[in-house]
């Protein structure tokens, strides 16, 4: 505490004030052409009616692909830091019963968010986060695998989002379109397929991140008694 902290906070406040000023100036001063109008105009051609999904999965699909690649890099980093942490003790009856209610509901809500993303707020990242949360709940209630499949399948699941996304882009290129330039007729189904793969991938990645290391293949019964309390 003391001088150094107040100095840092003062500096941060200064940066914040500068950013606020820049934002204000950009908003008031130079009202040039913005992309929002153009994007909203073209939403009907994108295959979905939710403008946010249209931008994320169609107009700027490249950005979303790279976001998935960032997640992939993050989990590889976590796995390279060592084996997974020890699991938790099995849950008592109350937490166990709660878990058996909450986890199916989370999976159901994830499916709903994935589907509803086409025409209302929702989408792959939110749905994937719910799947990841289901994994975290399972892990906290004593399931050592956090609901994740064995390692070979887990690898497939984690890479699935980037894989399907890239393959779709390359296939479209082979058909004479641009990379990730969907033809209007099949845009909806291509987006849904990519989003489904991305949801599974994000969910698996986030749940695997909570294991805090690369899953140990033979962990089923030997580790159980030595677990820690949540």
């Amino acid at each position: 505490m003391g001088v150094r902290h107040s100095l840092i906070i003062g500096l941060l406040a200064l940066i914040g004030a500068t950013l606020a000023w820049v934002y204000w100036d950009a908003l008031i001063g130079h009202a040039g052409t913005r992309l929002a109008g153009l994007a909203l105009e073209r939403v009907p051609e994108s295959g979905v009616s939710n403008p946010v999904t249209a931008v994320l999965l169609n107009f700027r699909a490249y950005d979303t692909l790279l976001e998935l690649a960032v997640l992939l890099a993050a989990i590889l980093g976590i796995w390279s830091s060592g084996p997974e942490a020890r699991g938790f003790l099995p849950a008592g009856p109350v937490l166990g019963a709660l878990t058996s209610w909450v986890v199916p509901l989370l999976i159901l809500a994830a499916g709903y968010l994935l589907w509803v993303g086409g025409h209302a707020p929702g989408g792959a990242f939110q749905a994937g986060a719910l799947l990841g949360a289901a994994g975290v709940v399972l892990r906290l209630s004593g399931e050592p695998s956090a609901g994740l499949p064995p390692l070979p399948w887990l690898r497939v699941g984690i890479g699935l989002g980037v894989l399907i996304f890239t393959l779709t882009g390359l296939a479209l290129m082979a058909l004479g379109q641009g990379f990730l330039t969907y033809p209007a007729a099949s845009a909806k189904w291509l987006i849904l397929m990519i989003e489904t793969a991305a949801t599974l991938s994000i969910g698996a990645t986030l749940a695997a991140a909570y294991l805090a290391g690369e899953p140990v293949p033979a962990r089923s019964t030997t580790q159980q008694p030595g677990g820690t309390r949540p």
Binding site: A85, P121, F125, A129, L130, V136, A212
Partner: peptide, 25 residues
């Protein structure tokens, strides 16, 4: 609402769980 959903689920929920585990470690 899209960003709000993502922030609540990822920013507060999952990042929070990850950081709590890291803090315990």
């Amino acid at each position: 609402p899209d960003v709000a959903l993502a922030e609540a689920a990822i920013g507060a929920g999952l990042a929070g769980a990850l950081m709590l585990a890291a803090a315990r470690r």
